[in-house]
């Protein structure tokens, strides 16, 4: 019995030692292989469960499998956007091996992801601003040209509309009817792509100013006509009574009184104009919208679009303030 038991004990010891050592060595290899297989099959959770089974090494023991398992787990977790758990996995390694460079780099990268992205946004902004600025200048140029052209066109159309000469008022009615009744985009296409077939080729800028100018002249024409007709008829009579001609009465008496009434609706139109210039991007003109679109398509970076929106807002805000100032100045004579 004593003999048996001692032999059995020895056998058991060897068995256990053997099994222990063999099982340990075999276990890690097999475990990593299994977890790789599971990952390949897409079972990330299964792979994680396996990796977590690798115990912390005893002092003096080989740390390789433990570190590998935890870092692999951290990578899986990070890919699942479980940043906190990924960090915890790295911390397990760092608690035992504070100098492990792989874990430290990974933690740094994770923390970088967690941090607000303002510095990347800032970098993008600085990268995009020159192109957007050039685009904004084109937009501004286009807006200013149209603002110069369309009130004059609008005034002519308005005076034509109230003219007693039928052909003149008919023509002006037709212009308003056509340019208010068709999409601005279509008008721009016609001027830029359609006119060359009639032998007229225009640069994008010229085509844009003509298209926007005509369209906004039609709208402003109706606004100006309304403002002129809203002036008390007695003003025209008083002007005529001192011997003024119709033209003198319009220029000296009637039209100056329309300025204050014109500013709110005209301001509206011009704010709309600033945004409508974006349509010009469709006729090969690189203005703000087109510049932003190009950046967006090149870098696939939404920052370009956000910046464009902000620049449009800045432009509209500036013009809003200018229009309010003009309106105040135009009506200063009404103050008692």
């Amino acid at each position: 019995m004593k003999y048996v038991s001692s032999r059995a004990l020895v056998a058991l010891f060897f068995l256990c030692t053997l099994a222990g050592t063999c099982r340990g060595a075999m276990d890690y290899d097999q475990l990593f292989r299994q977890s790789s297989d599971l990952m390949a099959q897409g079972d990330l959770d299964g792979a994680l469960t396996l990796l977590k089974q690798v115990p912390a090494p005893a002092p003096g023991e080989d740390a390789g499998p433990f570190v590998s398992s935890r870092m692999q787990a951290a990578r899986i977790l990070a890919s699942q956007e479980e940043t906190d758990k990924a960090l915890a996995a790295c911390q397990e390694v760092l608690r035992l091996f504070p100098d492990n460079s792989e874990a430290r780099n990974f933690v740094a990268a994770l923390k970088d992801q967690l941090r607000p992205k303002w510095h990347t946004v800032l970098a993008d902004t600085l990268r995009f601003l020159p192109a957007l600025g050039r685009g904004a200048m084109m937009t501004l140029l286009l807006v200013l040209c149209t603002m110069l052209v369309s009130p004059l066109g609008g005034l002519l159309i308005a005076l034509g509309r109230i003219s007693t000469l039928r052909p003149v008022s008919g023509l002006c009615w037709f212009i308003i009817w056509f340019f208010r009744g068709t999409p601005l985009l279509l008008q721009l296409f016609f001027i830029y792509y359609g006119l060359p077939s009639l032998g007229i080729t225009l640069s994008p800028m010229t085509a844009a100013v003509i298209g926007l100018g005509l369209n906004y002249s039609a709208y402003l024409g109706e606004i100006i006509r309304g403002a002129i007709q809203s002036i008390d008829h007695g003003q025209m009579e008083a002007a005529k009574a001192i011997g003024m001609s119709y033209g003198q009465a319009m220029r000296r008496v009637i039209i100056p009184q329309t300025y204050k009434r014109l500013m709110p609706p005209v301001g509206n139109e011009f704010i709309a104009l600033i945004k409508d210039t974006a349509l010009v991007s469709t006729i090969a003109m690189v203005e703000l919208m087109r510049a932003a679109d190009q950046l967006f398509n090149t870098y696939f970076n939404i920052t370009a679009l956000v910046l464009a929106a902000m620049i449009y807002l800045v432009l509209t805000t500036i013009f809003t303030f200018i229009f309010e100032k003009i309106e105040y100045r135009a009506g200063i004579y009404e103050q008692r």
């Binding site: 007695g234 003003q235 009579e237 008083a238 002007a239 009574a241 001192i242 008496v253 009184q257 004579y333």
Partner: peptide, 12 residues
């Protein structure tokens, strides 16, 4: 010269 009931001065 003509003078109107409602004056019609040029307000601007």
């Amino acid at each position: 010269g003509m003078v109107f009931q409602h004056f019609h001065l040029f307000p601007h």
